[in-house]
Write a protein that binds this DNA or RNA. Structure first.
Length: 855
RNA sequence: GCCCAAGUGGCGGAAUGGUAGACGCAGCGGAUUCAAAAUCCGCCGGUAGUGAUACCGUGCCGGUUCGAGUCCGGCCUUGGGUACCA
């Protein structure tokens, strides 16, 4: 008997799809359009199971939309600039460009056998000059439109390697290569003025109905709109020309609890004082050693320096001025007033330096003074005030803030102000492998934009005849002998090219628009973006919930302002889905006190325990760990495809977990998927050998189940319930294989099964379709529609609960009136036993669902 | 630290506030086989009981409800993000 042979059929059908041009996106005004996009990968050189899962989900959507008559755009490309290419060049020689393009070739080859419906004719990499040249044009337009700014910002500086480090290159405050203590240093940097759009980006979140609520919430908190008070405390004695400290506070209502003023180490007064005080200068230097990440700053021990100066408190008395390591220069005014009783950081600081702790309010039923835990109730909670600037005695935090702002404005102490946590987007990177920022610095004209006809400003591949030495730290563009020296686009005098390149988030902030016309000589083409935008379904990892997605939302708006997108594309992703990771068990043993990680193929599994194939030693199983090269728990998609075929890999990554959750790759699970596909193939083979026109029993029962499967699988596919759809397909396959129905009904059932499976297992489905003599390609066939008449059930089974616990069930006609059900229930044995002759306390009948008797 | 999630049998998981454990894996029993592999059929949360059945059970503690895995409050653990990893 012939068997399911994925290796043969998968290649055959991939060729058939290509010949039919099924996946080439074509504008067709007679069809609804559908744009499905998976977040494009970084070309690491190795496709992993996470990619397979991500792209399979997009493929399911794309294939389903093709089958429902849409003009589908389903592109793929590479997010190809970034540090790993430079790191590879640093560590093993070679060139970032060569390394990147070689990796792209490898990954494209690895994707091919999976049978995805990507339109590869639109593929590009962000490091293609044709792409980043258009990005430079966008930059110039945005510069012109006032969306870009240039100003100083703090970076991680490695004083030994003389280079800027990324946060991940700073380990415990030291440079990853040099081991030197990393310092903060100010450089002049380019910024996108995303904060100008903070309010709009926040407001528009409310309309993103098809985004996960968690992502909208994360963005909302990230943007962090707050209304507070900006007020100036006059200095008791002016110093260095500064006569007052301006602070911003979201809790002006606690002004009476103020016990000191905190200055950022970067505050102008701090800087002025440090020039005269070596002790303060030393303290500021120490603060500069701290990591620049928010997490590090927040978790660091709270430290301060008493300046000895004071300000006048408008409520009477004076407050000491401290420099505090936890006050950020980037947020608000770089200075705070501290209220230790109602802020944990302030409290920790106050206890450490013996500063006063003044309670300003208590819980309504408790008046314990704050000890070592600040009292910070929700702002919506009503509290009892003991000493409130605006004179309140009982109010919520919200009410008190508003009342205090009004009070302060009336008294002239300060003004109400809206503030955002969101900061402008610094896009400068002092690195080679990125998109060059197209400006020139001229000693006469200052910063001059490049002329558009000079674009793309291409990265130099080498130093003329010499190769670039990437093993030397720092930016090769900075030390390039000729690339930097160019005539000023304005006056023609020799000037210096900007050597900063762009943050790679810029590359990924507009690639989705470029896919609509990747060949164009302008960033976008109106008729193409008008037709294809927006992305109907975007799919990617939750790790991009904030930065990538927020930057893309900003960029779409900036592209509208510069005429590259229609107004309707302000929110470029209509629907977003965030999928989970693929994990795998780690097999671990110990040797000389150090962990040893074993490859899955070196381990035998028995009864949930793992033993080494060689020697039989039992090893520890750590379940559900993120796949990682260093833990030897990576499963290679190519190995799976050669063992089981692409359809098995695709089926498995969707079957075992809901798509938003992590899925654990297990050998037994993959085995089970392969077996199932083999069963379907054998079933189709068996049906194809039945006598045509042969009669049987239960045709209608089979077709009823088929229509239920159509309904459930369609619902599953349309709502990202892939695992539920697959469960239904398992069940329907079992029904079909047990069916004694006639040939016509069985053939119809197996062809429908093939269609329903096609988004997940397109090759197998195509083969079944052909075996049954289906017309054309299964992938091009119209998606089946469930016949409502076949879905109607005559009767329904109602569970009977007694006091909320299921005790029995009755089956009644679907439309039986409530009072008749009640009669039946009261006559039920279990109910009569429970009632013991008495009347029920309550009888709840939920039609079609459940009955609950309260006794 | 802060923001956002997740936690259900031996395992992955299912369940519009309405029968907790669909479907799959593992395991157990059986059919087929000289035997095995493959395949097929059945059982499968825990405790007690021959059984009908009873009690317990969705990370922990408490609450709302006729009814809570699901809603609310407080914790614990794990994961994602924290602005130069992408």
């Amino acid at each position: 008997m012939s068997r399911y042979d994925p290796a043969t059929i998968e290649a055959r059908w991939q060729k058939a799809w290509a010949q039919a041009g099924l996946f080439t996106a074509k504008r067709d005004p007679s069809k609804p359009k559908y744009y499905v996009l998976e977040m494009f990968p970084y070309p690491s050189g190795r496709l992993h199971m996470g990619h397979v899962r991500n792209y399979t989900m997009g493929d399911v959507i794309a294939r389903h939309k093709i089958a429902t008559g849409h003009a589908v755009l389903h592109p793929m490309g590479f997010d190809a600039f970034g540090m790993p290419a430079e790191n590879a060049a640093m560590q093993s020689g070679g060139h970032p460009k060569d390394w990147t393009y070689a990796n792209i070739d490898t990954m494209v080859d690895q994707m091919k056998p999976l049978g995805f419906s990507h339109d590869m004719s639109r593929m590009f990499a962000t490091c293609d000059p044709e792409y980043y040249g258009q990005q430079q044009a966008l930059f110039l337009d945005m510069l012109d439109a006032g969306l870009i700014d240039r100003r100083p910002a703090v970076v991680n500086w490695d004083p030994v390697d003389m280079t800027v480090l990324a946060n991940e290159q700073v380990i415990d405050g030291k440079g990853w290569r040099s081991g030197a203590e990393v310092e903060k240093r100010e450089l002049t940097q380019w910024f996108f003025k995303i904060t100008d759009m903070a309010d709009e980006l926040l407001e528009a979140l409310g309309d993103l109905d098809d985004w996960p609520a968690k992502v909208r919430l994360m963005q909302e908190n990230w943007i962090g709109r707050s209304r507070g008070l900006e007020m100036t405390f006059p200095m008791t004695t002016p110093e260095a020309g500064i006569d007052g400290i301006t602070v911003y506070t979201t809790r002006p209502d606690t002004l009476t609890g103020a016990s000191f003023i905190g200055l950022s180490p970067g505050h102008p007064l701090t800087k002025a004082l440090a020039e005269k005080s070596p002790e303060l200068a030393a303290f500021v230097d120490e603060c500069k050693k701290m990591d620049t990440t928010e997490a590090a700053i927040e978790k660091a021990e709270k430290k301060g320096f008493d300046t000895g100066l004071t300000v006048e408190n408008p409520l009477g008395g004076t407050l000491p001025i401290w420099v505090a390591n936890f006050v950020l220069m980037d947020y608000g005014t770089g200075a705070i007033f501290a209220c230790p009783a109602h802020d944990q950081r302030d409290l920790d600081f106050a206890r450490k330096y013996n500063l006063p702790v003044i309670d300003t309010f208590f819980a309504e039923d408790d008046d314990t003074p704050v000890a070592n835990e600040a009292f910070v109730p929700a702002k919506t909670e009503r509290v009892r005030w003991v000493n409130q600037p605006a004179g309140l005695t009982s109010a919520t935090g919200e009410e008190a803030v508003e009342a205090t702002i009004d009070w302060a404005e009336e008294k002239g102490f300060g003004t109400g102000k809206v503030q955002f946590r969101l900061r402008d987007w610094g896009l400068s990177r002092q690195r080679y492998w990125g998109c060059p920022i197209p400006v020139v610095h001229c000693s006469d004209c200052g910063v001059v934009p490049e002329k558009k006809e000079n674009l793309p400003i291409e990265l130099p591949y080498d130093n003329g005849n010499e190769p670039i030495d990437f093993s030397v730290p720092g930016n090769p563009l900075d030390r390039h002998p000729t690339w930097r020296n160019v005539p000023c686009p304005a006056c023609g005098k020799m000037a210096v090219r900007e050597t900063d390149t762009m943050d790679t988030f810029v590359d990924s902030s507009w690639y989705y628009t470029r896919f609509t016309a990747p060949w164009a000589e302008t960033p976008t083409v109106a008729e193409e973006v008008d037709y294809w935008m927006n992305v109907d379904q975007y799919i990617g990892g939750i790790e991009h919930a904030i930065l990538h997605l927020l930057y893309s939302r900003f960029f779409a708006r900036a592209m509208i302002k510069t005429g590259h997108l229609p107004e309707s594309a302000a929110e470029p992703f209509d629907a977003l889905f965030t999928q989970g990771m693929v994990t795998h068990a780690i097999f671990k043993s110990e040797k000389g006190g150090r962990p040893v990680f074993h490859y899955p193929e070196d381990v035998d599994l028995k009864d949930g325990k793992a033993f080494l194939k060689e020697g039989g030693e039992e090893v520890t199983v750590v379940p559900s760990a993120k796949m990682s090269k260093s833990k030897n728990n990576v499963v290679d998609p190519l190995a799976i495809i050669s063992q089981y075929g692409a359809d098995t890999a695709r089926w498995f990554v969707l079957s075992d977990s809901p798509p938003e959750r992590d899925v654990e790759w297990t050998a037994s699970g993959a085995e089970a998927a392969a077996k199932h596909l083999g069963r379907v193939w054998a079933l189709s083979d068996k049906i194809s050998k039945m006598e045509a026109g042969a009669a049987g029993q239960g045709d209608e029962d089979l077709l009823r189940e088929m229509h239920k499967a159509i309904r459930d699988v369609t619902n599953g596919v349309e709502s990202f319930g892939f695992n539920a759809a697959i469960a239904k397909l398992y069940a329907f396959t079992a029904t079909l294989s047990k069916s004694k129905a006639g040939h016509a009904a069985q053939r119809e059932a197996v062809m429908t099964l093939a269609q329903l499976m096609a988004p997940m297992t397109p090759h197998l489905s195509e083969d079944v379709w052909a075996t049954q003599g289906g017309e054309g390609l299964c992938a091009a066939a119209t998606w089946p529609v469930a016949d409502e008449a076949m879905l109607v059930e005559a009767s329904v089974t109602l569970p009977i609960q007694i006091n909320g616990k299921r005790r029995d069930e009755i089956t009644v006609a679907k439309d039986m009136p409530k009072d008749e059900i009640e009669k039946l229930v009261l006559a039920n044995d279990a109910v009569m036993r429970a009632l013991n002759g008495g009347p029920p306390k309550k009888l709840i009948v939920v039609p079609g669902r459940i009955v609950n008797v309260v006794v």
